[in-house]
Amino acid sequence: MSLLFDAVLCLLLLLGALGVVATGAARPAVIAFIGYGLLLGLAWVRLDAVDVALTEIAIGSGISGVVLLHCVRALPAPPRAPAAHPMLRPLAAAIAVAIAAALALAVLALPEPAPTRAADVAAALPATDLGNPVTGVLLVFRALDTLLEKVVLFLSLVGVWALSRDPACRGRPAPLSPEPAPAPSAFLARVLAPIGVLVGLYLLWAGADHPGGAFQSGAVLAAMGLLLVMGDQIRVPAAGNRSLRLLMLAGPFGFLAVGFAGWATAGVFLGYPPGAEKAVIIAVEVAITLSIAVTLALIVLGPPADEGRS
């Protein structure tokens, strides 16, 4: 039974990927991409990687999908491009298939059972008082990578804001839709947002011991914030707002501060105070979640408008 399910899933994944590439227009391609991301999330669940599945669905399909849809709508109708060389597409397809086949061969040649660090992680995990090994790797053993990935996220927002006409980036981003929200959207935002926020907070809280964590939770919270904006329940905040900016910095720099404090408490950078590891780790996760939620939502909303014009 599960074999049949997996076979159908693989087939659908291939069809979904083909759909993204084959549709000529931008909007159907984006919608196919969102569907493809959801199927990919299912595939990760089948591989017992629930953390990856949650992240794929929330970020890869959800937030990226909204950004892409927003872009498609903002784009003017594409000018009639001169027809590409008739051999170009078959050639690109042939190269892609060849690379995929080579990768498949390389993956099949990997040793079985796969060498892994899972045993090391499992041995070192009890000292951190965490139950979810993924959280252990992200926030303890490879904390430096996670810390700097948060800086990457911050930089991507700086990059989006650099496109603003206002050099100081103080204004409000343009609303997602120029018209007032229709009544169903407002209703949906009022009903769904509280539930969604609860789900987001649960993912954060559960992340220490079960699948879930800061990134998944931040993405859900960001989506709820966007839903409220689209339903006209809250106003888009101004980019120059001091508390908004503090929230954006809280994650990466709170984490960095904990890292420096590690020198005093544990004698090593990014070490956690012995005995209070779990409490500090959860505090870091809360700060990271807030920053991720705010930053992701602001990335979707786009560069702030010029204050002089709005």
Partner: peptide, 11 residues
């Protein structure tokens, strides 16, 4: 060794 964890577990 960041965090005091020696490679290959740490960074």
């Amino acid at each position: 060794f960041v965090g005091g964890f020696a490679p290959p577990l740490g960074v």
